[in-house]
Design a protein around this nucleic acid. Structure first.
Length: 118
DNA sequence: CATCGAACCAACC
DNA sequence: GGTTGGTTCGATG
């Protein structure tokens, strides 16, 4: 059973959360990134759980789980093919600016409210 | 800046 | 019942 409350997912099984995450990921345009926390709010789960879900995505990078980074700009992890190096490469190719310290620039972040409202 | 602990979860042991 | 995750956030020194 899955319940939606104020646009936030409540009690669902892993499979349901995974489907929800994938849908949200498809909304992120190339060249932009979102934070784990943002997804966590929408899904109603703790941020750590988002990581677990993304790690469970077997269709990376078709489903762009590489466009999810830490809120402080650091890349976070990537368990898909090619590992973290590949994640960074993908982002750069898509136009995300990453500084020498491996931080994503703030203007590359996008919020789901901006993706859903316009 | 570094470290700490708690947190909205389901699965697994 | 405790641990585990690609984490976050606020409080603290």
């Amino acid at each position: 059973m899955i319940v939606i409350e104020n646009g936030i997912v409540r009690k669902a099984c892993l499979r349901d959360y995974l489907d929800a995450v994938k849908m949200l990921l498809q909304l992120i345009p190339a060249g932009k990134v979102v934070s784990y926390g943002e997804l966590a709010r929408l899904l109603g789960v703790p941020p750590v759980f988002v990581g677990k879900l993304l790690a469970m995505n077997d269709e990376a990078p078709i489903v762009p789980c590489h466009r999810v980074v830490r809120s402080n700009g650091e890349l976070g992890g990537y368990s898909g093919p090619g590992g973290i190096r590949f994640k960074r490469k993908l982002l750069e190719v898509e136009g995300v600016r990453i500084d020498a310290e491996g931080r994503v620039s703030r203007d590359s972040f996008v919020h789901f409210t901006e993706l859903l409202d316009p």
